[in-house]
Design a protein around this nucleic acid. Structure first.
Lengths: 125, 125
DNA sequence: GACACCTGTCAAAGAAACCTGACACATGTC
DNA sequence: GACATGTGTCAGGTTTCTTTGACAGGTGTC
């Protein structure tokens, strides 16, 4: 949808991510809890409550962090039914790959939307 | 100073950054203004006041952001004397390189110091 | 001296991120 | 029904980040 071209299978390739995308990924990863969640998930998929117990944090909090990670496209969640009929939300890592170099960041920065706080406004002439 | 082994010239190589280091880099880069600063600096070194005018932000703010970037090892500042004797602080990009993949993040997360907030307290029994 | 430029810092306001406890809803077992 | 498991959300307080304006200092020129 923007900038780059490379599009491998269902995997986001690192070639020239849009500024907004990179920004979302970086701010999502720039948090100790979220990094730890990635680590926990790297050992296999798991559902929220179990994950919460494993990492030792409240469910509401975990839920919110997972949401942030999912919004950045780093993890994927899917609601499934267990054998007993209980609904469980399983999360797993999405295969991502980003390269951080001065030029890569600079390049992405130029495509930053900046403040999309400009809800409406911008048509004078 | 930690984990990895690779050590090229005077450049921080991406092999296995410590959790704390990666965290600092990611949170430093996860900010639109800071990304834009990197972009501006990618076109050459510059001093604070000029940079502030170019990007369009207050000096105190820029100063603070540059400090954050420098603390993460992404830019370098050096106070120099201009011909006229004026003191100018020039900043320039440091050559960094980090690879972001699920495993790389997970690996780094395991070496997280987390809360060094344990100032004092912890001795009941 | 008054003005231009540069450097740095501080305090207080504002915004955004974070975290917690309580609540809602399901299901299956004793 | 009472209890365990799972899901989700919301209000509110706390903490951290961001931003601004005012101030300190320095230099050199008119």
């Amino acid at each position: 949808m923007s900038g780059a071209a490379v599009t491998v299978e269902g995997m986001s390739k690192a070639s020239a991510p849009s500024g907004d995308e990179l920004l979302k990924v970086l701010s999502a990863l720039g948090n100790p809890h979220r990094m730890r969640i990635i680590a926990a998930l790297s050992e296999g998929r798991n559902y929220v409550s179990a994950l919460a117990r494993e990492i030792g944090m409240g469910r509401p909090l975990l839920h919110m962090h997972l949401q942030r990670l999912e919004a950045a496209g780093l993890v994927t969640g899917s609601l499934e039914l267990s054998e007993s009929g209980k609904a469980m939300k399983y999360f797993e890592l999405s295969p991502f790959s980003y390269v951080l170099t001065p030029d890569a960041v600079a390049e992405a920065a130029r495509t930053l939307t900046e403040d999309e706080k400009t809800t409406v406004k911008e048509s004078a002439s």
